[in-house]
């Protein structure tokens, strides 16, 4: 049974999301999200430093603790939206829970920069860490929602390029298959999950097609839909997904496929939680960060 806070705030979040995605249009959604993001206070107890990459911005979120562990975090936002304060908050919680410094990579967004621009920025973020002298064994990659998709796609691209893989990777409520064909939860959650109920089927506004530049063929590419790729040889993975979101099947299928390919993959299905509940002040969010901290500590002892 989800906590009282979770049940109350999930409803509010649902209304906020409906407001953002109402009459979906990228410009309107961005300005609505910016308004909501302004209400989010900047995280306390961390230092934020700019660290620009060649084609996008990035930020270090540091707790000031003595640590050589690094998490490269990729914020979500349906590949087209961004709410920096919200993700600074996630990065700060993660930094505290896992005793790490977090590099928040603000990869380029669609539709201005369609696939694979965002993915290239994520790879560049990882390469920058290596160039800065961070060992792969001290790096964990993670992201939420679209950022989770990019985190998994980055792993596939690094493996295919014979680059050293990070020590682990996690994805929070990730979209692992853009074609959205897999999974019975998609229909079961149709009425609850606005990610599909509000925007699906509108070719001019579907974020997936905006991300792929209108090219539906790209949806099947493993770097866009990691579930469709070969998952052998990946690093340990942790997926966390809410039990009340339609992406739940995508996460469990991904973990099953990864485990069948010999990867140490786990998925946590959190009862009654909405999409990326980590951003909310729920007890469940804090517990989820505790588990992420445990995971990072396991990957980078």
């Amino acid at each position: 049974m989800p906590s009282i806070q979770s049940q109350l705030l999930s409803r509010l979040a649902d209304q906020a999301m409906k407001t953002i995605f109402r009459d979906f249009n990228v410009d309107k959604a961005r300005s609505r999200l910016a308004m909501i993001d302004r209400l989010n206070p900047a995280p306390t107890g961390v230092q934020i430093e700019s660290r620009d990459l060649s084609s996008c911005a990035a930020e270090w979120i540091r707790t000031g603790r003595n640590t050589d562990r690094v998490v490269m975090y990729l914020p979500g936002g349906a590949w087209v939206l961004r709410s920096p304060n919200t993700h600074r908050g996630i990065a700060a919680k993660l930094a505290k829970a896992a005793n790490v410094d977090v590099l928040l990579v603000f990869y380029r967004l669609a539709p201005e920069h369609p696939f694979p621009a965002g993915l290239q920025d994520c790879i560049e973020g990882y390469e920058t860490l290596l160039r800065d002298g961070v060992k792969p064994s001290r790096i964990v990659i993670g992201g939420d929602s679209a950022g989770g998709n990019l985190a998994l796609a980055t792993l596939l691209a690094l493996r295919d390029g014979n680059a050293p893989l990070p020590a682990g990777a996690f994805a929070l409520s990730p979209c692992t298959d853009m074609s959205l064909e897999e999974g019975g939860a998609r229909m079961a959650m149709r009425e609850f999950d606005l990610l599909i109920s509000e925007v699906e089927g509108r070719i001019d506004a579907d974020p997936r097609l905006l991300y792929t530049g209108g090219n539906a063929d790209v949806l099947d590419h493993p770097y866009a839909s990691p579930l469709r790729g070969n998952l052998a040889g990946l690093c340990p993975l942790l997926l966390q997904v809410g039990g009340a979101e339609f992406l739940v099947d995508q996460s469990t299928l991904f973990a099953d496929k990864a485990r069948a390919a010999g990867v140490d993959a786990e998925v946590e299905v959190w009862e009654g939680q909405p999409h990326v509940w980590h951003v909310m002040p729920f007890p469940e969010a804090n517990q989820a960060f505790d588990h992420l901290g445990d995971f990072v500590r396991r990957c980078c002892p």
Binding site: M1, S3, I4, T252, R259, V269, E271
Partner: peptide, 27 residues
């Protein structure tokens, strides 16, 4: 061995369950 899937449930209370049920009805 580990496990692929873990279903995570959290603490509940009678008040929370009643409120949750009311919230569901309002929803």
């Amino acid at each position: 061995e580990g496990r692929t899937r873990s279903d995570v449930t959290t603490e509940s209370s009678p008040f929370g369950e009643a409120l949750g049920s009311a919230m569901d009805r309002i929803g």
